[in-house]
Design a protein around this nucleic acid. Sequence first.
DNA 1: ATTAGTTACGTAATTGATTACGCAAATTTA
DNA 2: TAAATTTGCGTAATCAATTACGTAACTAAT
Lengths: 162, 162
Amino acid sequence: MQDVFSKLGPLIVGSRLKRMSDYIMRAGAEFYNSNGVDFEPKWFPLYYLLSHEKELGIMDIAQKLNISHPAVIQLAKELEKKGWITSTKSKEDARKRLLKLSKKGINLLPQLQLIWDDIREVNRQVVESQSTNVLKALEEMEAFFASKSYNERLKEYQESKK
Amino acid sequence: MQDVFSKLGPLIVGSRLKRMSDYIMRAGAEFYNSNGVDFEPKWFPLYYLLSHEKELGIMDIAQKLNISHPAVIQLAKELEKKGWITSTKSKEDARKRLLKLSKKGINLLPQLQLIWDDIREVNRQVVESQSTNVLKALEEMEAFFASKSYNERLKEYQESKK
DNA sequence: ATTAGTTACGTAATTGATTACGCAAATTTA
DNA sequence: TAAATTTGCGTAATCAATTACGTAACTAAT
């Protein structure tokens, strides 16, 4: 027995999800690299988002991507350093800093699209190979916990035992 | 539209897995807390492992848990500080440091078991609610990539397009 | 018994993300 | 319109885990 995790079943759903996610992220990083594109998977969500919406403030992005706003600032700093995005102060609201893709950033897009297509295809293969679809499972989980949170459920079960 | 992620489908399986894993981990942390037990989810794998095997070296543990050995050292340091584990030099191999639960650590077990039971139950509920089972999906994914890695598949698809 | 190579562990530096905090601009309310 | 509150952003501190590197102990080969 080498891998204790798989034996534990439902007890450690969390850890197993993380493990698979880490694996995929790392593989993605390698792939960009071997294609000679200086891009990291962690940048994808922000980059992709900005490629679809012209301008967004930090908080908007944080909400849409479901990450903390300092994380957005950090990522933005990195992409700005690469020259792929620019930021401007909002005219309507002086507190806001709006991010958008720069020309250089837009020019990079076609190259990235090709790579994203490959990734999308392999992910599609995985999902199709499955008798039980991860994405569907995840959606179901999210819905399950949206209707009643994990912690509420824990509490309730605990109460029910008394 | 608030949540961009779900729209992206197969492109970001990785991020979605991570998000769900993070959610579960955080909920777990709260639950220990609200039960007045000073325990963190990240300790679970090591603790659980040691509760089943009497003594293990750092590297053994790292392999079994599929984490880096510095991570094991770190976790062990924390558990040792709590007084729940102790370590001794191996007599057969002076390089090895063997970890095991202390008496105090063993005494804590029954309390933890109760909590783990609750967690297991709620996880079981999730899984049973699903028309597609996350754990099964994960297992299938792991098998899929074990037979041929993500990166091999990416390369192959790329070749096939030329 | 020396040397070369491997294994086990520890430390340091780095990465990626979070929470906590503070400031300034906008909004609400009295 | 002044005061209180909320919102948007930035910085700092912290956390969890990794990679990279060094050292000591073991093993194998000559």
